[in-house]
Design a binder for these strands. Structure first.
Length: 345
DNA sequence: AAATCGTGGCA
DNA sequence: TTGCCAAGATT
């Protein structure tokens, strides 16, 4: 039996029952693929369920407010996915009369849809023989063929795409693509795969050469920068507070947060009280300010480590542009802010 | 082409 | 505790 035949057989016996496997509606497949980018199935599942209820069609998504969408996306990370999802929904409704793109080429025109996602939708929904290459596929192919070329090098990206494209079952690309990804996720796992039950144990080069644990190769470690955030949590007599929207590009774009003073190092209250930025926001004095957390909260993003202090400031009067604390949940916020609110409000 | 963009689970 | 990395895309 060839690779595709063995793979498909394994898939039909071992595949998980996932909600997006019961449809070929491109809107639902698109939604699921965006949610699952760089995201584990277990984390994305609840979000998929929420989204199809809130936005049953691309028209519902297109006419929603961005805040509503970001609010549902809250906690999932990589928020540009949500913004691009909204942008592309509007594009499909307004520029294509609600007709979903039906070819790889046209799918690629959607913001947030790259080679992988276009291939996934084209194959699953329209049987176009476009091979997907995600993290799972890199791992399966690197091991099966014993390839030590870095998967994130220009050469590697090109090579693995060609390998997958040569391997794909053109008679049933939808099943092949989902099978190879599921196989990577469930059987050919990153750590401690059980090769003794693998259907490829007699043909896998990595298994033969004891390379399973070191493949695939990925080079370049990301540099982590440290930042110091001081959030000012102002509380008014009527239980109102201040929130700002992050408009600049960078992390958490378009999400909300408390007024922020970013510093180049950790500061204590005596240093905080000296800062001009503080007095532009409040006239509170030393006595009105208390540090919520005993130690700085270390919030780790993939390439930034944030050291965060929440300074709670009792304001003696009401403030301009404040929001009621009871309305806090209406604003999309980073999980860091959400966790603070959960603990304090 | 290399950097940037979140969060959570796991060994 | 630390590092890896997950149905990647964008600039």
């Amino acid at each position: 039996m060839d690779f595709s035949k063995i793979l498909t057989k394994w898939y039909l016996q071992n595949k998980r029952d996932l909600p997006w496997r019961n449809t070929v509606n491109p809107y639902y497949i698109w939604l699921s693929e965006i949610i699952l980018q760089q995201t584990r199935v277990n984390q994305g599942l609840a979000y998929y369920e929420k989204f199809i209820v809130a936005f049953p069609t691309v028209f519902d998504l297109a006419k929603a407010d961005e805040n509503t969408i970001l609010n549902l996306w809250q906690g999932l990370g990589y928020y540009s996915r949500a913004r691009n999802l909204h942008f592309s929904a509007k594009y499909i409704v307004n520029e294509r009369d609600g007709k979903f793109p039906a070819t790889f080429k046209d799918l690629l025109k959607l913001k947030g849809v790259g080679d992988y996602t276009a291939s996934a939708i084209a194959s699953i929904c329209y049987n176009e023989p476009c091979a997907v290459v995600d993290g799972n596929v890199y791992r399966v192919l690197a091991r099966y063929y014993g390839i030590d070329i870095p998967i994130n090098s220009t050469e590697g990206i090109k090579l693995f795409k060609k390998l997958a494209q040569d391997l794909i079952d053109t008679n049933d690309p939808a099943t092949f693509n989902q099978a190879i990804m599921e196989f990577g996720a469930m059987q050919c796992k990153p750590k401690n795969p059980d090769c003794s039950i693998c259907p490829f144990q007699n043909s896998c080069i990595a298994k033969e050469e004891k390379m399973v644990e070191i493949l695939p190769i990925k080079d370049k470690k990301i540099k982590v920068t440290k930042r110091f955030f001081n959030y000012l949590v102002l509380i008014s007599p009527m239980d109102r507070t201040l929130l700002n929207q992050r408009k600049q590009k960078g992390i958490w774009r378009n999400l909300y947060q408390f007024p922020l003073i970013e510093t180049s190092k950790e500061i204590d209250i005596s240093e905080l009280i000296k800062m001009d930025e503080l007095h532009k926001i409040t006239n509170a004095s030393n006595n009105d300010i208390t540090l919520f957390n005993k130690k700085p909260i270390i919030h780790k993003l993939s390439h930034q480590h944030l050291s965060v202090n929440f300074w709670v400031i009792n304001s003696d009067k009401e403030m301009e542009n404040s929001i009621s604390i009871s309305d806090f949940d209406k604003y999309p916020v980073p999980i860091l802010i959400h966790n603070f609110a959960e603990a304090y409000f």
